[in-house]
Computed example of a mutant assay.
Amino acid sequence: MITDPLFYAAAIPAVTLLGLAKGGFSGLGMLSLPLMALVVSPVQAAAITLPILIVQDVVSVWAYRYTWDKRNVVILVVGATSGILTGYLLAAQVSDAAIKLAVGLISIAFAIRRLVLERGGREPKAIPADLPRGMFWGWVTGFTSMIAHAGGPPFQIYVMPQRLPRDVFVGTGAVVFALINWIKVPPYLALGQMTAENMATAGALFPVAIASTWAGVLLVRRVSGQLFYTAVYVLLVFVGAKLVYDGAVALL
């Protein structure tokens, strides 16, 4: 287990952000890995984070167990499984920097367009779940999650235009990413990232992970549905900007 106090000074805030994101404040979790990567390698940070995410998934799925959309979950998880497999097979050939840059640009364009439409009183009609788009964005979600740990924005781009009730949107994301994280375990094992040190370090952070996820659940339920969606769009702009910055810096 890692014992360096400097690591925990970065890891505890990072896990707290992950918990708030799992509780419903989508987007905050994107800041976690960069924080942890200040004190350990990005690969080790990702390996430590995966068991923490799985524990947090238990809390978030339990909290939203009655409010999730089955059709969306089935379509997205099937697509994501193929995306994860593609990411695993191409892990050595695909640049995560290029993926981050592309996902970031798409996320910013999508979020700004939706915000402009809403502010102008021209909110388009809700777009229902459908198989072709769902399979595509599910694949992108799985692929980017495996390659660049950036599965959240593609999920939001597909689901948010459906204008699901707040709790159904959050619950659907909780179930989708809970399943995706378990599907990612075998590839992570195959890549040799699930070491005893990393697992023990993750275990030491479990109490923070559980407490912060419950805090996210309680806080998000105090926010109105309309305000929640506006906040998620704004967060998506910032997350997209962070992805663009990370990708551009790495490429240059």
Rank of each mutant, 00 (worst) to 15 (best):
V237Y: 03
I183M: 14
M160R: 02
V159E: 06
I147D: 08
F238K: 14
V185P: 02
I183A: 13
I183D: 12
Q226K: 14
M194G: 05
F206K: 04
P154Y: 04
E197G: 08
P165D: 10
G173L: 06
A241C: 11
A211F: 13
G192R: 08
G225M: 03
S224E: 14
G151W: 12
I210K: 02
S224R: 12
Y188E: 01
H149C: 02
V175F: 09
V185D: 04
F206T: 14
D167W: 05
F155N: 14
F228T: 00
G171P: 05
E197R: 08
L227S: 15
S145H: 06
G203Q: 08
T144E: 05
V175I: 14
G192C: 04
A148N: 00
I180M: 13
V170I: 14
G171Y: 07
G216A: 11
Q193M: 12
L219I: 01
G171C: 09
F177W: 00
A231L: 08
Y233H: 09
V185N: 07
A204Q: 15
V176S: 11
N198Q: 10
L179E: 00
D167Q: 11
Y229G: 13
G151V: 03
L164D: 02
A209H: 11
L164Q: 05
G152M: 03
P187D: 08
G240D: 12
V217H: 04
I180F: 10
V175M: 15
V239W: 01
Q193H: 03
V176P: 07
N181S: 01
Y158K: 13
M146D: 06
P154L: 06
T144W: 11
A209I: 11
A200E: 13
M194Q: 04
L205G: 12
M194P: 04
V220E: 00
I157E: 13
L235N: 13
T172P: 05
V217C: 03
Q162M: 15
G225C: 01
A211T: 12
Y158I: 14
L189T: 07
F206E: 07
G240F: 03
S224A: 11
W214I: 09
F228W: 01
Y158N: 15
G152H: 05
V232N: 02
